[in-house]
């Protein structure tokens, strides 16, 4: 801030060189700012406008009001999409947080070769959802994957065909999603556990509290903000879920694993209903805003409060 003020309070007798010099930072920033501004605001407004138009195979700009939104919400496939999103978000967020927390607490017990364990649990994050989805689709394939293996071992009636069952395919996606990203929750929880003040824990130990009690009463409340952060990031992933489904089930069997992002892609590029596809994209943006706006306000509020107290 101090530097900025010294720029602003330049003396009257500046040479052109100095004056130009003070513009350099803004000139450097300008292209990125412009690009970001277009990307965020212009693109969102543009897509919103398309969602109010009669665009079909190509974008056109005949105004039709909210027609696309009405037909979107009347569409059975869209209701499958957002039902799936709710189901997926719930199980995926809770599941990956539960697994992540278990792993973090276990690794925090001064285990040997800590980085070895961490490397194993985190590597799925480096791989794309496309790779993960493809590989898991093979494992779920009854004719060659897990079902085949178990039947070969002797249980000839064993049945495990999650991904090819309309009713259960969504759970195949949930399991794979949890597998992919529980390492992420683990990394954040572990960082949180490491930041807990050792003296408080020691004091509780001296008071004779059991390890379980110490976790429940002392440590978990301290890392509570991390739970919220992890949940928000995961819900955001869930809303944007596209690759995983595209690689694992392609939205099928039938329409059973359609997600909002799949719906957008399908309408825009497969069925030539760009207007309604844009409406669905706007609904995704709304869903993200519903999650992120209250969260950011809460974070700002908490920082202010801490600033005042500290």
């Amino acid at each position: 801030m101090a530097v900025a003020q010294s720029i602003a309070s330049g003396t009257a007798g500046q040479s052109w060189r100095e004056r130009f010099g003070s513009l350099v930072p803004i000139l450097v920033l300008a292209p990125s700012l412009l690009a970001s501004f277009i990307y965020v605001f212009v693109f969102a407004a543009w897509t919103f406008y398309i969602s109010l138009s009669n665009s079909a195979l190509l974008p056109s700009y005949g105004f039709v009001g909210l027609d696309n939104y009405f037909s979107l919400w009347a569409n059975r496939r869209w209701s499958v999409a957002y039902t799936n999103l709710f189901l997926f978000s719930g199980f995926y967020v809770l599941g990956s947080m539960a697994v992540g927390l278990i792993l973090a607490v276990l690794i925090d017990q001064r285990v040997r070769a800590e980085s070895f364990w961490r490397t194993i649990f985190l590597y799925p994050l480096a791989v794309s959802f496309i790779v993960t989805g493809t590989v898991w689709s093979w494992l779920y394939n009854p004719a060659s994957g897990i079902q085949f293996l178990v039947r070969n071992l002797g249980w000839s009636n064993f049945s495990f065909a999650l991904a090819s069952d309309r009713q259960y395919a969504i759970y195949a996606i949930i399991i794979t999603g949890i597998w992919q990203s529980s390492g992420f929750a683990m990394a954040l929880f572990l960082a949180g556990l490491r930041s807990v003040d050792g003296d408080i824990v020691k004091a509780a130990q001296i008071d004779g509290a059991s390890p379980f009690r110490i976790y429940r009463k002392v440590i978990l409340p301290v890392i509570a903000p991390i739970f919220l952060a992890v949940a928000v990031v995961q819900i955001q992933f869930a809303i944007k879920t596209f690759d995983l489904v595209a690689a694992l089930t392609r939205g099928g069997p039938g329409i059973s694993t359609t997600f909002p992002a799949i719906y957008v892609y399908d309408l825009m590029f497969q069925r030539g209903q760009i207007g309604e596809g844009a409406a669905a994209a706007i609904m995704m943006l709304v869903a993200l805003a519903v999650v992120l706006v209250p969260y950011s306000l809460f974070v700002v509020w908490r920082r202010r409060r801490e600033g005042r107290n500290g």
């Binding site: 965020v40 605001f41 897509t47 596209f242 957008v264 892609y265 825009m268 669905a280 994209a281 995704m284």
Partner: peptide, 17 residues
């Protein structure tokens, strides 16, 4: 404002791009 870009779903930008 630039940060908002972090949260933008790619689907919003498909037609403009």
């Amino acid at each position: 404002c630039m940060l908002l870009g972090v949260f933008m779903p790619g689907q919003i930008s498909l037609m403009p791009w």
